[in-house]
Design a binder for these strands. Structure first.
Lengths: 181, 181
DNA sequence: AGTCGTTTGTAGCGGTTGCTACATTTGTAA
DNA sequence: TTACAAATGTAGCAACCGCTACAAACGACT
């Protein structure tokens, strides 16, 4: 029964799991600590205060999110922009992504309000997603940078419409052919 | 000095103004009431409890939002899909819309979490925006329903990217030509 | 043996939260 | 004038919040 020392690093996954289930909006230290098998005092001992805890948690979750994407996604290039769009949409609409997406819109809301840790996490995730989209596009695409940004914008709009219960609007929009190629 | 009777109806605009400035995420009754010139007890007297207050507030704000759109937007039809996209983006990127957009992403976050008043408000706003986009498209557009949905999806994706501090991505995406017409 | 960082126990601070109890004042209609 | 419901003032409840204080254990390392 060697008790693991509960450093910041091996605490973060437990905290992230709780946050993915319960969201960031009404996060409070005591239930969070209980879920991770500690006390609020220990969280403050390790992270200083709640702000810093949340900031580190956002970094951790942003990293996890891109890892989750890598697992779900094919590694090779696809044959067209349309295939690229379709593949990403199909993957991110899977049931396993729901918790991430609920959290995602809370992060966006925080970023929109100007809270910098949220904006940083959201920006990092989008940058990663964009780079990853470019690697997915066919090699002969005439303008991969443009295409990737276009597809990303469409996907995010569609995900928002999904989130608020208007997937039909997104479906029609996504069925429309993306620009040439 | 005839004291206005402070019914629910003439209280809502004052409450909405406060919420537009301070957001919904950390809304609490006492500061809200103070801003509207009442007490928390009166708010509960009029609205029953906080949940119902927020629900009515969301309805009110959704209505206001579409009114604000109508004021900013041209009434006639435009000559192309591209012009339509450009016009809406320019209007919603104006400084006057910032408070609405900050609130908007909080509503989306609430909707994504499954809170029904938020989903209802968000859905109503998107439906209205969609109908309004269809009326803006040129009469000779071959598929106005499809075009409106496509443009709406793009716009919302772009607004999210704006909100998180990545307007460059949105710019490139919006510069790409929307599908034929 | 002694040191040091980590973990825990116990307890509480001052503040805010949504909400309620009770008594009182107002405006209006019979 | 009386009656009654709407509106308000004052006061407080129990719960929770982030955070702190102080002291005692623990473990690993020198």
């Amino acid at each position: 029964m060697t008790r693991t020392p509960m450093t910041r690093e091996n605490l973060l996954p437990l905290l992230a799991a709780y946050v993915l289930e319960h969201g960031l909006a009404r996060l409070s230290l005591r239930p969070l600590a209980a879920a991770a098998g500690t006390s609020d005092r220990m969280l403050l001992y390790h992270f200083g205060n709640k702000q810093q805890l949340v900031a580190q948690l956002l970094e951790h979750i942003a990293a996890r999110y891109t890892l989750a994407l890598n697992e779900v996604m094919p590694s090779g290039r696809l044959e067209s922009r349309a295939a690229c769009l379709e593949t990403v949409v199909a993957a991110t609409r899977g049931a396993g992504f729901r918790p991430y997406l609920v959290l995602w819109w809370q992060i966006v809301a925080g970023a929109a309000q100007g809270e910098s840790p949220y904006a940083a996490a959201a920006g990092a995730i989008m940058d990663r997603l964009l780079a990853w989209l470019e690697e997915l596009l066919p090699l002969d695409d005439p303008a991969p940078g443009l295409a990737a940004r276009h597809i990303l914008t469409l996907i995010e709009g569609a995900q928002m419409l999904d989130a608020i219960g208007r997937p039909q609007i997104a479906d029609v929009a996504l069925a429309a052919v993306p620009p040439a190629s």
